[in-house]
Write a protein that binds this DNA or RNA. Structure first.
Length: 422
RNA sequence: GGAGGGGUGGCAGAGCCUGGCUGAUUGCACUGGUCUUGAAAACCAGCAACGUGUUAAAGCGUUCGGGGGUUCGAAUCCCUCCCCCUCCGCCA
């Protein structure tokens, strides 16, 4: 969340920054409620000081067995005045918090302008497309002839958008997850975590999924718990409401999790096969870092996600998102898009973002600086490393053979114990 | 699900019965200093967060799991919710 000081002191600059992101919000209402709120707060502050003073006098009088009745009576009146004011104040505070929690993060100055994805910048492409001498099949056709997954039957269980991996498809999926986790733990020094898949409301408020995007998530009403849309949520909240030592930073966590997304409003879009799902598997990487380090960390975190694609020798490109395409919480974001030869298009497999102090303010995640012992908010970052469904699409389509089998890429063979899927 | 115990500062752990100089005793950790060739030990001093205020501070206010209540006054009494632990039941 954006600090109220920043809203007070940089109103115009903030308005134009948020407009870049496509939010034309009325910050003036925030300013006026804030000053109103603070005026009331300062008033009640004085009244409470008065009450505390007299209350101590009453204690003294009682101690020396003197009569304190006058003071008690007058404090009774003051007390109810304070109570009235306090309830007024809490209404104002609630309104103020609500407005601020609905403000998106501000794009970093390096983010290119633009209102939608057409203004995103391709930083580079990596890898080359294989020149196949036969007619290549798409992943759905390969998957059904090799019996790797079964969408017809999973629809009976859960409806559309819930994959059912079978046989070597399940093996391949499990191998990919292990392969990716081991890259992040062994090569890139992340601590492996197995997080809860259901979290409380505070956790999804920290990451920015609440209050604005409740309809994107699955919710268990009776327990007021949310199915995680990504392991970002539990990983980022591990240090919720904590003060870390500077020497503990950076914190680097990785986790496999299933991810659950309602995808409300996106029916009819990419509905086929693996492109858009209600449940999918993902290895996530998260870092908590000192503010000064966060942009350097974004570059390295992105390279950690890219390492998976490079190891599998899959063609991809790195995209820098323009301001208008940034997610609610992000200050800057790179997308990694993988080339699916049969689909003939680029598919997003990773989103690597720096949230600066936007999430850490919401989750009160801080650290103590060594230089002056003062407390400050950490910066949080995360990236997919990677999401499996679209990775699987590209992998099947890229590594298919003329006879309809799939050659398992060499580094994955340690995990699948198979060279060919047939 | 049933019975009981507990949630206090970076950590550990008093205070709650018997409400009032307790924002909180004490220990550890941390910071500075004395001593030492250096280190350890010992000793001395400092050390919560947030809001407000200020050049900076002082000062003032809030916070003892969350919310509400009683009271002139609540860490302390009452209600309620959440979480943790032990035992019993059920179950992977």
């Amino acid at each position: 969340m954006i600090s109220i000081e920043r809203i007070r002191n940089n109103l115009e600059a903030l308005k134009s920054s948020l407009a870049l992101k496509g939010y034309n919000v009325d910050l003036n209402e925030i300013i006026s409620i804030d000053s109103d709120y603070r005026a009331s707060l300062s008033l009640v502050n004085d009244l409470r000081a008065e009450r505390n003073k007299v209350t101590n006098q009453i204690a003294e009088l009682k101690k020396s067995k003197q009569d304190a009745n006058d003071k008690i009576v007058s404090m009774r009146a003051l007390g109810s005045k304070i109570k009235d004011l306090e309830s007024e104040i809490s209404v104002k505070k609630e309104r103020l918090d609500d407005l601020i929690l609905n403000l998106p993060n501000v794009p970093h100055e390096s983010v290119p302008p633009g209102s939608d994805e057409s203004n995103n910048k391709v930083i580079y492409e990596w890898g080359v497309e294989k020149n196949q001498s036969f007619d290549i099949k798409n992943h759905l056709s390969l998957g059904s002839s090799l019996k790797l997954f079964d969408f017809e039957r999973s629809a009976k269980l859960s409806g559309s958008g819930f994959p059912l991996y079978t046989g070597k498809g399940a093996l391949l999926e499990r191998s990919l997850i292990n392969f990716m986790l081991e890259i992040q733990t062994q090569k890139n020094d992340y601590l492996e975590i197995i997080p809860p898949f259901l979290v409380n409301s505070n956790s999804v408020l920290t990451t920015g999924n609440l209050p604005k995007f409740s309809e994107d998530m699955y919710h268990s009403e009776i327990d007021d718990m949310w199915l995680i849309p990504t392991a970002e949520v539990p990983l980022t909240n591990i240090h919720y409401n904590e003060i870390l030592n500077q020497s503990d930073l950076p914190k680097k966590y990785t986790a496999f999790s299933a991810c659950f997304r309602r995808e409300a409003g996106s029916y009819g879009k990419d509905t086929k096969g693996f492109q858009r799902l209600h449940q999918f598997n993902k290895v996530e990487i998260v870092q908590l870092v000192e503010p000064e380090e966060s942009y350097k960390a974004l570059e390295s975190l992105t390279s950690h996600a890219e390492m998976v694609l490079k190891s599998l020798n899959l063609k991809y490109r790195k995209i820098e998102l323009c301001a208008g395409d940034l997610s609610f919480s992000a200050a800057k974001c790179y997308d990694l898009e993988i080339w699916a030869p049969a689909e003939g298009k680029w598919l997003e497999v990773s989103s690597c973002s720096n949230f600066e102090d936007f999430q850490s303010r919401r989750g009160n995640i801080r650290y103590r600086k060594e230089v002056d012992n003062k407390v400050d908010f950490v910066h949080t970052l995360n990236g997919s490393g990677l999401a499996t469904p679209r990775l699987l699409i590209a992998l099947l389509e890229t590594y298919q053979n003329a006879n309809g089998t799939i050659t398992v890429p060499e580094p994955l063979q340690d995990y699948t114990k198979l060279k060919i899927i047939d």
